[in-house]
């Protein structure tokens, strides 16, 4: 299967690690033989229609900072758009960084991929948060598949759990801790009695939070995930602007103290229960949803099966890359059935 990888950051690099480590198992167990025909990063692209040597590309990326430095296969002038337009492949993986205001370059990359008949796996939340219904419609119209397991819960199969394991039941509400960074900060504040600023600093030191942490602490990242879950699992058509969002900047130690005395914890909760919201809420300390540190948790309330909570690490390069692998295998099975039908 020929793959174009757009964006070669932590997730992209972890994915090539998996391809290299799991080559034999992937082929033997799933008949999956990925050939990465092009990789792009901020410096340009590397292209080989016969499949790039991933070991070589990884070492060039580490040494030179960009895959375009490859003396044989590198192209400094080529953009992701150029590649998607001109290179033949079955799949485009959109792994550029999330832009929650414009969704670009992700949205354009995905549209071009659809237009040229490529299936898409995205780990980029921006395009989905801003135009989920549009992208789903375009994918169906162009008869290609769009997969995005890595956008919610990292490696934790939150979307698949709801979509496949709860098939047939009606999910009425969804509540979740969808952002590991804010959960870490809130946990630190509650347990070590440190201020919000101190906890944020510590999160940044550990690499959990970005230098510009607004996306996490203002609740935008959680809201993007609410959009994805709501559209995909509950079939509600809405985008980021429809979500009421309150972040955690104004949470005081005092508020945490009061909650604690009631046997509760304050968590940043994304909910779809009627209106989609993201806001800090008090929850019972023994609620399965009440996880600590960087963990994520989502509770599905369904008509017959009742409440199920799924807990796991919500981020990380290798975890998210494992979700991409799941998506790729899923597409492979779909394609094989289609080709042979």
């Amino acid at each position: 299967m020929r793959i174009i990888l757009i964006g070669y950051g932590v997730v992209g690099q972890s994915l090539t690690d998996i391809f290299l480590q799991r080559k034999i198992e992937n082929l033997r167990n799933y008949g999956f033989n990925p050939k990465v025909v092009a990789i792009t990063d901020r410096g340009g692209a590397a292209i080989n229609i016969k499949g790039l040597d991933l070991k070589r590309i990884q070492s060039i990326k580490k040494r030179e900072g960009t895959v375009a430095a490859d003396s044989v296969f590198g192209h400094r002038q080529m953009s992701g758009q150029d590649i998607i337009q001109s290179i033949e492949a079955e799949i485009m993986i959109e792994a550029t960084s999330t832009n929650i205001t414009t969704g670009e370059p992700g949205i354009s990359n995905i549209k071009t991929a659809f237009n040229t008949g490529k299936h898409v796996v995205t780990t980029n939340k921006g395009p989905l948060a801003l135009s989920f219904p549009t992208l789903i419609e375009l994918a169906e119209h162009n008869k290609v598949l769009l997969r995005f397991s890595g956008t919610v819960g990292g490696g934790t199969p939150i979307l698949e759990f709801a979509k496949k394991c709860l098939e047939g039941d009606r999910i009425k509400e969804i509540h979740g801790i969808l952002n590991g960074t804010t959960n870490y900060i809130l946990t630190e504040m509650a347990e070590k009695k440190v201020t919000f600023e101190k906890a944020l600093e510590s999160a940044q030191k550990l690499g959990y939070a970005e230098t510009n942490p607004a996306m996490d602490i203002d609740g935008l990242d959680s809201a993007a995930k609410v959009v994805i879950i709501g559209n995909w699992i509950m079939n509600k058509k809405f985008t980021l602007k429809d979500v009421d969002i309150i972040g955690i900047r104004d949470i005081t130690l005092n508020a945490l103290e009061i909650a604690s005395k009631k046997g509760k914890r304050i968590k940043l909760i994304g909910s779809i229960d009627g209106k989609p919201t993201v806001a800090p809420k008090e929850i019972e300390r023994n609620d399965p949803l009440c996880v600590n540190g960087v963990l994520n948790a989502v509770t599905f309330v369904s008509e017959y099966a009742g409440r199920e909570t799924i807990i796991g690490r919500g981020a990380g390069g290798i975890e998210t890359a494992s979700a991409v692998l799941r998506d790729l295998l899923d597409i492979k099975h779909h394609l094989a059935n289609k080709i042979l039908s």
Partner: peptide, 15 residues
């Protein structure tokens, strides 16, 4: 060749 190989692998391998 590349298209042929990719499609054959997707359809035939693992089944």
């Amino acid at each position: 060749l590349e298209r042929a190989m990719s499609t054959l692998e997707i359809a035939l391998l693992g089944r």
